[in-house]
């Protein structure tokens, strides 16, 4: 196989998309299934260890996982020639296909989730962690907003993954 072989690069980008996606959704589920439900059970004096040491590290891999997943995904869709048709959910495509609609719905759900990470969760988490100055009331509001956006993403991740797997393995 030549190094310039299109399929080799396409497969390489797909691998990058999936490995970044696991990094992203793995952390999302860690926050929602493990960290957040456990926090109230942790003695008050130990909670700063989570907020000051574990949370910033986890958020680093979480947000960059999201960025690389989106980037690799868009490149992959472009390389495979269905980027525009998928964005339009296959509507008006020259050869409409259920796979295009499926990957399109998955792409839109993933993009909404990526937006939530970078423009809702992170700015609010920065207030919670003290990176951005905020009053105690603002910190409480930020914690609630970030938590809700994180729950929205957990909810959307379930149909999003269905669409991704559907599109890849329908035939």
């Amino acid at each position: 196989m030549e190094l310039s072989d299109f399929n080799w690069w396409s497969q390489f980008i797909r691998w990058g998309h999936i490995i970044s996606g696991i990094m992203w959704i793995g952390h999302l589920w860690y926050f929602n299934f493990t960290q957040t439900p456990t926090m109230p059970k942790i003695p008050t004096e130990l909670r700063p260890a989570v907020v000051r040491f574990i949370l910033p590290e986890a958020l680093f891999w979480f947000r960059w996982g999201a960025m690389f997943t989106l980037g690799f995904g868009l490149i992959l869709a472009y390389m495979n020639g269905y980027l525009i048709d998928a964005i339009k959910l296959g509507i008006g495509a020259p050869s409409p296909h259920t796979k295009t609609t499926a990957i399109g719905i998955g792409m839109w759900l993933g993009t909404i989730m990526w937006f939530n990470v970078w423009f809702i969760i992170m700015p609010n988490q920065n207030k919670v962690m003290g990176v951005t100055p905020a009053t105690p009331d603002e910190v409480n509001a930020a914690r609630r907003t970030a938590g809700l956006a994180s729950r929205v993403n957990t909810m959307l991740s379930i149909p999003m993954l269905y669409c991704m797997v559907f599109a890849a393995h329908y035939y």
């Binding site: 729950r151 379930i158 149909p159």
Partner: peptide, 30 residues
């Protein structure tokens, strides 16, 4: 919405319901 997503179980159930909705749409247009 906030009440539903306030619980982890509610979040997961909502995710499964949305998945069924998507699956039905994809089945209908096939």
């Amino acid at each position: 919405m906030e009440k539903l997503l306030g619980s982890l179980a509610g979040t997961v159930i909502a995710g499964f319901v949305l998945t069924v909705v998507v699956a039905v749409i994809l089945h209908a247009i096939h």
